[in-house]
Write a protein that binds this DNA or RNA. Sequence first.
DNA 1: GCAAGGTC
Length: 603
Amino acid sequence: MKVIIAEKPSVGREIAKVFGATTKKDGYIEGKGYTFTWAFGHLLQLAPPQEYGYFGWSVQNLPMLPPKFKLSIRKVKSKDGMIEDPGVKKQLDIIKALFDEATEIIVATDAGREGELIFRYIYYYLKCKKPFKRLWISSQTDAAIKEGFRNLKPGTDYDTLFNSAHCRSQSDWLVGMNATQALSLASGNKGVLSLGRVQTPTLAMICSRYLENKNFVPQTYFQVAIQPDKDGQSFRAIHDKNFKTCEEAQVVLDAVLPTGNILSVEAKPRKEPPPLLHDLSSLQQEANKRKGFTADHTLSLLQNLYEGKLVTYPRTGSRYIGDDVFAGVPALIDGFKEHADFGKQAALLSGAKLSKRSVNAKKVTDHHAILPTGEKPYQLSADQQAVYDMVAGRMLEAFHQDCIKEITKITVLSGNKFMASGTVIQTPGWRAVFNDKDEEKKDEENATLPKVVQGEELPIINKGILEKQTKPKPLYNEATLLKALETAGKEIEDEELREAMKEGGLGTPATRAAIIETLLKRTFIAREKKNLVPTPTGLAVYEIVKNQQIAQAELTGSWEKRLEEIRGGASVAAFQEEIKSYTREITQELLRSGKGMAAKVTA
DNA sequence: GCAAGGTC
């Protein structure tokens, strides 16, 4: 009997379907001489400190450097504290029984570092010795699965990938557990002051932006505006210079004549291509902007829709689909012809030439972009419906035509030169789906300018000085923070580190919502209207760590670079030694500097 | 009581 193990039930079932296996059992499916089972993501985790003899939280234990890491079953909170997750335990027993019967195992966890780790942790925890092969596919269509099975790889081909995954896992444990205990203990053990490779740079970003915003000193500046009139339709034109003083502006104002001469009129069409399909992060950002949903809430709504088979896999980091999935898109679009809000646009797109901007198999990673499945939704909650419509609407947008705008620039001479600009949408294209205002241009005045020609002389019906102030960068909200986490590392000076981070940023699509929730749970940050702002505790932690490596996105960059080298065959031991040495260092440093917190965190 | 990673 050959056993195929997937990362999650949906993929296990999909593969079973391709094989024509139909006998459903508890936790697996049988048929055609194969057995198809699955994990639920990580079933196992590195064992907590007490399993190595580090009892309680104590300076004497620090730094905790287990000579050999152990694995333990994923825990869940219950009324008696943390207990082994019963569902996980049960599935692990099922997997064990199947592995015991197996002649061969086929690994079908997601094609990536964590997917490899999910399987290997199970395999080593169960002390399994059976041979295994690897299925490596990035699309779960029938054709891709069949092709993958014709091309199974030897399991050992992925040993170095497992090594890099295991190092990632151990390093996060060592640095996170030790730094957390060190700071918590040093500050008087009044509560958990957690630190980690991802959460601490995230906290630092929120704090640093908050302080920058709070300490910002606005500068006043002055602009000079005139209002020419063309046959009763007036518009505003502004002198292109900003003045530091009102007096300087007054000079320009005084020079304004009773009329203005049109020096030039420039009208240029601009094509605006449709947006890409959604990945999790972009959808979380949109749901936060449109509906004020938190990243966590959006993820859980999407998980519901996914379990109801209404949308494809949600925790994806790709905004593209392959050609195989694209082949099914026209039928999906047809399915929305009756939709209350965008039925008209679906009908318009039906049979039209579709934009292929979101079609690129090379940019599909473990999973493709989020799409509706074509199943008809039934009795969705208002929030579920809202998210579902964002997925469906984005699909219509992504395959729609360009939006064509006309951008007009008018230069008027009246003593000095004044400029007016306006944007008019000529063909809405993809913008017709939601019919939203263009966010960036919302403030811009003169959306429509009157038709004027060069050489025309227009009366100036009004003129004046505008007093304005420079504005600070805005505080982070969930949408802008998610974006910042995605792009974290883009500013790093070291080219190699920047390169190592360019794929991922900080955290992963699956974990970013949880990171924000962790910082809220620790009361390091709080929600203030739509913004995320630090609390006094968060700021105190930031003050202690802000100049240390653990608060920099670069730490992830340097790890990613080394982990990639390990995947290519480089020494595991060398990296592990460096991590241990860094762990000793940061533990010492925090035990010392954390004392400065003691006074600040007395609640 | 603690990390980051995955998922129901």
